[in-house]
Design a protein around this nucleic acid. Structure first.
Length: 493
RNA sequence: GGCAUCGUGGCCGAGUGGCUAGGCACAGCUCUGCAAAAGCUUGUACAGCGGUUCGAAUCCGCUCGAUGCCUCCA
């Protein structure tokens, strides 16, 4: 018996605009595709939020007992700087500017991406395919779309005929757009356009002679259009129709719209049952942009080497901060917000330590079974992590009351409580313990315990100058002493 | 200009018709040698205007503002 058989999950489907009961195509199995990064620069913090949301979703599915195939691609070709005729590939442009081979650019920023995600304690996806590794599959899809009559060739490039597609299908249904409106609002683009209509998008682009990234095709040397890779890779690894497709809100149009069009044009049916979109991250109320300086790299947060924040914050604190907001809401990052999250996070983790040491009683004042289900209810309601965290703080309060002897808990309830907290905090939210110092922990603990004993002796002798010195000096290096009825404990921050 | 999402107490952020999450900050109290930690108590907030309703933060309309997309972007 798996958990998912008792826990009834609802997800917000961007396609219908409603929360829907989640039912996978094959019971017990989930296919999930998330659009990964274009590796032409350091991973953006907003990017991290999107991937973190889906990491949490992936984790919750696994926790529920689903077997999940999670595919997150790496875009290493085909992503153009703009849509004009002289549009340059983002990777190729960076390579030109930095005088590197394009694959050096790809390698450098793929490594950066993985390094940052690892710090954030992301679970690796099941498959992480690259666009350049699937050129053949992309060409096959283009041929297919061609045969179905929804593509045309122009001067060595191939375009998707949106107007024709729209006659029998609904282009724009995901983003709530109508083709007529788009045509009416199209700005004047460069006149010498190969496209029949400005709404048409590239499936294959002809490579100019100076273009380094190029592959042979039935239409000559070129490279694939950006939207195509996701269709090729999701179809290859998850099938023509799969359960979940995720990505950032900004990809809804045109990227995901085009994916739907490509899939429907080539194989005739809708590729995805549930479209999930994560919302944006702003900073100090404004959008993050390199051009205005309102931008920060994840690594700069961890080291504190930046002009925006007052101190360094650990990846777990940033993760906790992000999990305190719902993934579909815009989240605003600021120094105050991070400081607040850090305190809350420490309080939560301290309670986890406290729970280990509490004595159990004959009865329970805390209805653990009910509380546990409330945690699931929160997550089952479209992955509502803010409510889950509120529930976790309910437990924190009870744990502290039990420690003070004002409430009690049976041994069985203690076990359930501990297991549930661990499951949600570590497995689902993906947070890590704040004192994860490895082998050093035991020796540190012994030293501090010794200091606590010395301080107690000093206090017993009313030598408060000495006792306060011990307490304050420890505090200065981040070790906080906590005097309780049962003696003194400490925590490291 | 068009489309979309949103605007909640000092800050961050849940909540979608009546029962008013949570975190942080602030204040008072308990505990303490003094603190810290912990606990208890206190905050009647929902951009503005109008409408629907017995009743609205929650539904509708307008205004203002923010963010995203419309050209690359998570």
């Amino acid at each position: 018996m798996q958990l998912y058989q008792n826990q009834h999950l609802k997800v917000y489907n961007s396609l219908s605009g409603k929360k829907e009961a989640f039912k996978p195509i094959n019971e017990g199995h989930i296919g999930m595709y998330v659009c990964g990064p274009t590796v032409y620069s350091n991973v953006h913090l907003g990017n991290c939020r999107t991937f973190m949301s889906f990491d949490m979703i992936f984790r919750y599915f696994k926790h529920l007992g689903y077997k999940v195939r999670y595919v997150r691609n790496i875009t290493d070709a085909g992503h153009l700087v703009d849509d004009a005729e002289d549009g340059e590939d983002k990777i190729a442009k960076k390579a030109r500017l930095e005088q590197l081979e394009p694959m050096e650019v790809v390698q450098r920023y793929t490594v950066d991406f993985h390094t940052i995600l690892q710090k954030f304690n992301f679970l690796p996806p099941s498959i992480e395919p690259t666009a350049t590794g699937h050129i053949i599959e992309q060409i096959e899809i283009i041929k297919d779309i061609f045969e179905k009559g929804f593509a045309y060739e122009a001067n060595g490039s191939v375009y998707f005929d949106v107007a024709k597609f729209n006659k029998t299908h609904e282009y724009g249904k995901l983003s709530g757009r109508k083709l007529e409106d788009m045509i009416a609002n199209t700005r004047e683009l460069a006149a010498q356009d190969e496209k029949k209509n400005p709404q048409d998008f590239a499936l294959w682009k002809k490579a100019e002679p100076q273009h380094i990234m190029r592959w042979p095709s039935p239409w000559g040397d070129g490279f694939p259009g950006w939207h195509l890779e996701c269709t090729a890779m999701s179809t290859k690894y998850l099938g023509e129709t799969f359960d979940i497709h995720g990505g950032g809100m900004d990809l809804k149009f045109p990227h995901h719209e085009c994916e739907i069009a490509q899939a429907e044009a080539s194989n005739g049916h809708s590729p995805v049952n549930y479209w999930l979109h994560a919302n944006m991250l702003t900073m100090n109320g404004k959008k993050m942009a390199k051009s205005t300086g309102n931008n920060i790299l994840p690594g700069e947060i961890f080291t504190g080497d930046n002009k925006i924040l007052s101190k360094a914050f650990s990846p777990s604190v940033v993760r906790f901060f992000m999990m305190q907001a719902h993934y579909t809401s815009i989240l605003d990052l600021s120094n105050d917000a991070l400081l607040a999250s850090e305190k809350g996070y420490f309080r939560l983790m301290d309670a986890l330590d406290t729970l280990k040491g509490i004595d159990t009683g004959k009865t329970s004042d805390f209805k653990v079974a009910d509380w546990r289900q409330e945690c699931y209810d929160a997550m089952n309601d479209d992955f509502n992590t803010p409510i889950l965290i509120a529930k976790l703080f309910d437990a924190v309060k009870h744990i502290n009351l039990i420690k003070e002897g004002k409430e009690q808990l049976t041994a069985a309830d203690k076990e359930t409580l501990e297991a549930t907290l661990h499951a949600f905090i570590y497995d689902v939210l993906g947070l890590e313990g704040k004192t994860d110092t490895g082998a050093g922990t035991n020796k540190l603990s012994e030293v501090v315990t010794l200091l606590i004993e010395l301080r107690k002796d000093a206090r017993d002798n009313k030598d408060f100058a000495t006792s306060d010195k011990i307490r304050d000096q420890l505090a200065a290096i981040g070790i906080q002493l906590k005097d309780g009825k049962e003696g003194t404990t400490f925590s490291v921050s």
